[in-house]
């Protein structure tokens, strides 16, 4: 039954949304179309865009691949320390990204962190740092999202497939994974959008060096710091567009998966 609309409640939706609308509108106040093409086609912008999108794509992929088995284990099994580990995975959501970034930085300043860098690749103030900072920030979210997808899939289906001759792996591959496919894809998009928009942890670990570790978000920070308002506005609009595109894609997939 359709409820009669109560405008007293609807007012709050408009009131809260109007704050965001005003903020978006302000951007266009400062937006200079003549500088748009010049800034947008510069090498520095292209580098930041390529770096942000490229790393976010890889980070979201690795994060999703790591999250699938972890989420499955949390959803299906009881094991010692489960509650503690489940809470620990919330860390990126309850701790500020800057604090998380500082924690990563502190780890790499220990002898173990230094040894790890010596034997692998440079992390601190390098592209590797962007990757590590984003992965650590995003993987917890991926686990949380994919776990909720797994929780929605009745374990009965796996039981039936086992009685039809499927091994545990075959059951996971042929039943659980196809049923979770759309949810996993949606969680990949959220992870990707979160990685593209990540700032706090990234700047702590990788710094903000133009044409080296300058992502789209650090670019806004750098341009505002040097009073380059036009440049900052263009980057904000770019990030907004990416965000809305990701959101639309997520909603589209979520809608299809509920059909």
């Amino acid at each position: 039954m359709k409820q009669k609309t109560s405008y007293r409640y609807v007012f709050f939706v408009f009131a809260i949304s109007s704050v965001y609308l005003v903020l978006i509108g302000t951007l266009f106040w400062f937006f200079d179309p003549t500088k748009f093409v010049q800034i947008f086609t510069s090498d520095r912008t292209f580098y930041s865009l390529k770096l942000s999108i490229g790393i976010a794509t890889v980070v979201a992929l690795i994060s999703t691949l790591l999250a699938i088995p972890a989420a499955y284990a949390l959803s299906r099994y009881k094991f010692p320390g489960k509650q503690f580990l489940d809470n620990l995975l919330e860390l990126p959501m309850i701790v500020s990204p800057a604090a998380l970034g500082a924690m990563i930085l502190l780890f790499f300043s220990t002898k173990y962190g230094s040894a790890l860098q010596d034997h692998t690749t440079q992390i601190v103030f390098a592209i590797g740092g962007i990757f590590i900072a984003q992965l650590i920030t995003v993987v917890g979210v991926s686990v949380r999202l994919i776990k909720s997808v797994m929780d929605e899939i009745p374990v009965r289906y796996e039981h039936i497939s086992r009685t039809l001759g499927a091994t545990q792996w075959q059951s996971f591959r042929t039943v659980t994974l196809p049923l979770a496919k759309k949810g996993i894809l949606a969680s990949y998009i959220v992870a990707w959008a979160k990685a593209v928009g990540e700032f706090g942890a990234t700047i702590m670990v990788a710094g903000a060096m133009p044409l080296k570790t300058e992502t789209l978000t650090t670019s806004i920070f750098l341009r505002l710091s040097s009073a380059d308002i036009d440049g900052a506005v263009i980057f904000i609009i770019l990030l907004l567009s990416i965000g809305f595109l990701a959101l639309s894609l997520f909603r589209f997939i979520a809608k299809k998966s509920t059909r």
Binding site: Y157, T163, T167, V175
Partner: peptide, 28 residues
Amino acid sequence: FPEVRKFGYLPQDNVLFPHLTVRQNVEY
């Protein structure tokens, strides 16, 4: 393991795999 034991199980609900057609279910 259930796959070795080979006792067919039909639960009360969620009986068929929803991502498969009837034929794919039967031939699973």
